[in-house]
């Protein structure tokens, strides 16, 4: 079994809550995508799990007609009305629905494996998915080899956060 070196200065994995930015759920049909991409100045990936990263905005495709748009809070108003009158769509702000954890360190995959049944080694860097963490729906994005974000609905965050903390302590013990 692989043991993680025990070091207080550098724990094998850390968990923190990221400050809220602006987050929207965008729904539209494939034929409306080009217009929306222009209006949002952001490509909308056409494969589930893919993400596009613009200058300040990101879009991740979570379903065949569903994207999450992440942006700085200052752009929220602009995004909210960006598609008005252009194409049939639903654009709903969900900034406050979500709490996002960042899980960082060489033990990140082991830590996520306490709650996620997917094989996360197959998740490429820069991609993500909606999945389940210990029975709680979550959106997972692999930001780097050992860095992930995990977003859950606000009221589930204490449960998920405590499990992540407990798991991080367990992984630090190296048992």
């Amino acid at each position: 079994m692989t043991a993680h070196p025990r070091s207080l200065a550098q724990p094998p994995v850390t968990v923190e809550v990221l400050p809220p930015a602006a987050r929207f759920s965008l729904r539209l049909r494939a034929e409306a995508r080009p217009v929306a991409e222009t209006a949002l100045a952001l490509p909308l990936p056409d494969r589930i799990g893919r993400r596009s990263v613009g200058a300040t905005r990101q879009a991740i495709c979570l379903g065949p007609d569903e994207w999450w748009i992440d942006a700085p809070a200052a752009e929220a108003d602009a995004i909210r009305s960006a598609l008005d009158g252009l194409v049939p769509h639903a654009l709903v702000e969900i900034t406050d629905r979500e709490i996002t954890f960042q899980i960082d360190g060489p033990g990140a995959l082991d830590l996520l494996a306490i709650g996620i049944a997917r094989d996360l080694s197959r998740l490429e860097v820069g991609r993500g998915a909606r999945t389940v963490f210990d029975g709680v729906q979550a959106v997972l994005v692999r930001e780097a080899e050992h860095r992930f974000t995990l977003s859950v609905w606000r009221s589930f965050a204490p449960h998920v956060g405590e499990l992540l903390e407990q798991g991080a302590r367990e992984i630090a013990l190296g048992l």
Partner: peptide, 9 residues
């Protein structure tokens, strides 16, 4: 089936 906690379909 529904991929309820995935793509939703």
């Amino acid at each position: 089936w529904r991929h309820i906690h995935g793509c939703g379909r």
